[in-house]
Amino acid sequence: MGTQGNHHQIDNIEFNVADIARSKAFYGQVFGWTFVDYGPGYTEFRDGRLAGGFTTDGPVRAGGPLVILYSSDLEATLGKVTAAGAVISKDTFEFPGGRRFHFIDPDGYELAVWTAVTDA
Results as ranks from 00 to 15, higher is better:
A86K: 02
E75I: 03
K80W: 13
F93T: 00
S72M: 09
P96G: 06
T77H: 05
T82A: 06
G85R: 06
S71H: 11
I88L: 02
A76W: 10
V81E: 03
V81P: 06
K90T: 07
G98F: 09
S89N: 02
D73Q: 13
P96C: 04
G85M: 07
E94W: 08
K80R: 13
R100A: 15
Y70N: 13
G97K: 12
E75V: 04
S89P: 04
L78V: 00
A84P: 01
T92N: 09
G79W: 09
R100Q: 10
K90R: 12
G98S: 07
G79M: 11
D91L: 02
L78A: 11
G85Q: 03
A83W: 04
S71L: 15
G85S: 06
G98M: 10
T82Y: 02
L74V: 11
I88W: 02
A84S: 14
D91M: 01
D73V: 14
A76F: 03
E94H: 10
G85E: 01
E75M: 00
K90A: 12
K80F: 09
A76C: 02
G98N: 10
R99T: 09
A84H: 07
P96A: 14
S71K: 12
T77F: 01
F101Q: 05
A86H: 08
G98C: 06
Y70F: 14
D73Y: 14
R100P: 07
D73A: 14
D91C: 02
D91K: 11
D73E: 14
R99M: 12
T77N: 06
R100C: 12
R100E: 13
A84E: 00
F95R: 04
P96F: 04
F101H: 00
F93H: 06
D91H: 07
